[in-house]
Structures are given as structure tokens and as C-alpha cells.
């Protein structure tokens, strides 16, 4: 069982969360021209990092907020967690 420290609620078991994928992916800006390549990168292409991976989780059975989690994909170790709107340095 992974334990994830929700920035709103505190340390909580993984089963209270659902996964949302790579958090570094940004939607192309609204109301601007979007190239096929940009759209492709946003919807489909993923870096799929081995090592530190910034990802989205939703605390769906807790506070229901989306959060960002920095987790190592080779060890599952979670180093930091952030609120959804927090910038990650």
C-alpha cells in the first residue's frame, strides 16, 4: 500500500485516491492556434519517466481535491506532494 500525504488532509492510504497521470502535461493555450503536433503531445505522447515523476492524483474518497505527487517510478517512493495550483520548484 502506498501512503500519500494529501496536502489538504494529511497522510492517507492509496485506496482513497485515484490516479490522473503525468502532471507536467499542459493543455495548449485556449483560443490560440494549436498545431497537430501540440495536440498530439497533449493528448497522447508521454515521457513515461523512470525515476522522479510528477503526477496527478485525486483524493476521491477523501477531500475530493486533485493534487500533485512527486513519486519515483522505480521505487514507488513519494518525495513531495503539492496542491493542484501550487507551482513545483
Amino acid at each position: 500500500m502506498l501512503y500519500i500525504k494529501c496536502p489538504h488532509c494529511g497522510m492517507r492510504p492509496q485506496i482513497e485516491f485515484s490516479y490522473g497521470g503525468d502532471a507536467s502535461v499542459k493543455r495548449p493555450e485556449l483560443n490560440k492556434d494549436v498545431s497537430d503536433q501540440d495536440w498530439d503531445d497533449f493528448v497522447y505522447n508521454r515521457k513515461s519517466l523512470r525515476g522522479k515523476h510528477l503526477e496527478l492524483w485525486q483524493h476521491i474518497s477523501g477531500c475530493r481535491q486533485w493534487i500533485k505527487v512527486e513519486r519515483d517510478t522505480s521505487t514507488h517512493e513519494i518525495s513531495r506532494t503539492f496542491k493542484a495550483d501550487e507551482e513545483v520548484a
Partner: peptide, 16 residues
């Protein structure tokens, strides 16, 4: 799997 040892009187949580 919540750690209930830390849940005190007049605390509440959402869980599963």
C-alpha cells in the same frame, strides 16, 4: 487502512 491511532475525539475523516 487509515491510522486510527491518531483519530481523536471530535475528529472526522472521509475514507473507505
Amino acid at each position: 487502512p487509515f491510522n486510527f491511532n491518531i483519530l481523536e475525539k471530535n475528529n472526522s475523516i472521509n475514507s473507505i
